[in-house]
Write a protein that binds this DNA or RNA. Sequence first.
DNA 1: ATGAAAGCGCTAACAC
DNA 2: GTGTTAGCGCTTTCAT
Lengths: 333, 333
Amino acid sequence: MTATIKDVAAAAGVGIATVSRVFSGNGPVGAATRERVLAAARALDYRPDAAARGLKTRAAAGIGLVLPDVADPFAAELAAGVLAAARDLGEHVVLDVTGGDPAREAAVVERLAGQRLGGVVAVPAGQDADWAAAARAGGVVFADRALAAFPHIPAVRADDAAGVRALVEYLTGLGHRRVAFLGAAAPGAAPGVRERAFRDALGGAEAVLVPARTSRDSAYGAAAGLLQSRPDVTAVVASGRLLGEAAVLVARELDLRVPADVSIAVIDDVPWAELCDPPLTAVARPARAMGRRAAELLARDPGRARPAAPAPLPTELVVRGSCGPPRGARGRP
Amino acid sequence: MTATIKDVAAAAGVGIATVSRVFSGNGPVGAATRERVLAAARALDYRPDAAARGLKTRAAAGIGLVLPDVADPFAAELAAGVLAAARDLGEHVVLDVTGGDPAREAAVVERLAGQRLGGVVAVPAGQDADWAAAARAGGVVFADRALAAFPHIPAVRADDAAGVRALVEYLTGLGHRRVAFLGAAAPGAAPGVRERAFRDALGGAEAVLVPARTSRDSAYGAAAGLLQSRPDVTAVVASGRLLGEAAVLVARELDLRVPADVSIAVIDDVPWAELCDPPLTAVARPARAMGRRAAELLARDPGRARPAAPAPLPTELVVRGSCGPPRGARGRP
DNA sequence: ATGAAAGCGCTAACAC
DNA sequence: GTGTTAGCGCTTTCAT
């Protein structure tokens, strides 16, 4: 059995409260007594029980972290940011994954709700979970995406629109006149921020919108369809790492030279971008900073919603080698 | 304020114990009463407090997960495995990172010890942490590495030796007679399993051992040194993803053609292996399975050490395009 | 089938 | 300074 405060008190020959004072650092304790208590505690390998403490103080502690998938590089980076902030804050973090499934997400949120957490940062998958209740209880902040159904929950986001804009300007500056957006919304559905920013930034050039879902197969199919059927597009911007992977893979299979035959850029920088041949140009989103920021938002105003739309974090256009002047164009250098 | 069991009892007009029975599923409860309680609970948005429950039942709950770095692909996969197992077990997981720093690791372990955890799975960084105490308290299982100082703590590992052996056989079968191991121990230090397996498997061929630490700079320097000063080696096996990255980068910079000029293979499959050009041959270690296994080990025998050396999990040689017959050799196809 | 009461390990008044 | 006491929200005998 692990030692309790009572054991320590007995061993040190003091009252139970004194031991408590020593460890919680609250009341005053004589130096000699403190030493005796500490010694006894060490001998018994005593450690205050966080749960009991929390029960008494009614203080919530810890940060919940809800991610679609830890193994995804973006999510992992974001987690690293949350972890870093948590460490500074002296909080622990409880991690849970949803697989992007709203039903699982609801279960996860339910589970987290019983955990006396100080708050949760989540990359939400769907509206199914009772985010409102969760927010009421301990404070929630979204990261990466927001949910229209929960406008009062603050969301830390990257400035994707600016990122796309910078990328498109770069591409058109290179001379591209027909560029594709890989990962558009389905024909009927509402276009996302990236897609809108893309169209808006394109100006005179032609936008080729290629719908794709975020699954390996869909990505691959979309990329293949695009690259095969539209030899006229000279550049493609892939919306997300999966689409990016699909694009370079398909280009290679089709024996398209990058960037000579087609320029490729991806939204979301990936660890292997440098290793690609040629290295992939990307708009990097500050995943780690986003995680850190989200956790800090929680701490700053525990339990209550914040301004729902903190300023988006800046993205950065990382120019590497995968984009060049269009085929046959004499790009101005 | 969040509702307590008392509130629910009052609202439902029943005793506090009845509510407890309904939620813990222990004692018998009349169907009608149960309904009333459930209704009251729903109305009050009541959720049993996990901490209080744990306090009473003295049942440890939850799995601690200690990783050097969540953003590392191997660690992230391992985490995914732990998470999956935890979900099946109905446990939550508390994640903490050490940055590979033994001092931080000690702090993390100390912190986790106060958390009434059912156990912790750790990819240990050093001996500083009081793993023995942690193991005594709740059960610890290591993953990926073991610590010689704690032979009683079980460790879930991959069969690296077999993986290396398979790789070396593949390479020598291709005709290589001089192959380098990138990531050997420092001259004085004891060689690791991989390095030993490498030497043993090489048979008649010459082993070129290149020491390197696991840092970006060291990896890069070692790779550059090797590829520049030893034009006679025709194949290099990189021990870990960092070294692998360094090898392909340096090869590219030196305008070495892979695999025509030099074959490259890496221990630890990486997500971008397919995207490399040519795709990287690798020995894949089952990170996710390791995580899952570690967590399950904890559950099977909570609180007490297991056979300290469960059978290592099998690795798999994933042959892609980065290895071929050596320069000038007429490899038998 | 249900309620009353006794704690789990801890902190926070309140005495001394 | 230090000890005593009353709970925090829950589970669990033990009665009823």
